[in-house]
Amino acid sequence: MTRFDDSLAAGLAERSKAASYGAAVYLLAPLAAILCQVYLPRFFAALSYLELPLLVTVYFALMRRRPASGAVTGCIIGLAQDALSPQPLGMNGISKTLAGYFAASLSMRFDVEHPALRFILSFFFFIFHQFFFWALSRGLLGRQVDFPIPQTVIYAFLNAVVAAALFSFLDRFRREE
């Protein structure tokens, strides 16, 4: 093997390394994210656009690197979020299931440890999630809702900024497999 092949293999091995967490982290992180979304807008209305449940879904999907696990995580978090909102169960569930699945699929091809890539992926998956939520609202519920692109891009940017800090915080609880 050449030196290039060795470094490539080492890089692939490093990239395919999945992270695991304690059961308490799996339980408390989504619960805290949902609680923040329920509690914070009481005092700061602007924070209602912070999609912490989505960010937690994307984080676990990226770090676990298993599409099935990402989809299940997104499904559970999304359904819990739906249960605390007046809309039918499944709207956030389907959107976050897809976000979790595709985030985990992408994590097998990229180095998701890099902060810049995490920022870009968070930005992308926020828009992805909002688009699917909008499409489901129109397609399944028949609601005439708009998809404000500039506003969504701004919120995606702000969520990506928060995601960069949140991901590095959650990294502290990581256990390498």
Partner: peptide
């Protein structure tokens, strides 16, 4: 992986459809 995804999405779509069609909620969840 794809099977799990399709299963979850299809299940939730059926749940949604049932709620919309019957105008009922899922109080347990």
């Amino acid at each position: 992986n794809l099977s799990v995804l399709l299963l979850l999405v299809a299940g939730q779509m059926m749940l949604l459809a049932w709620q919309i069609r019957s105008s009922q909620d899922v109080p347990l969840i």
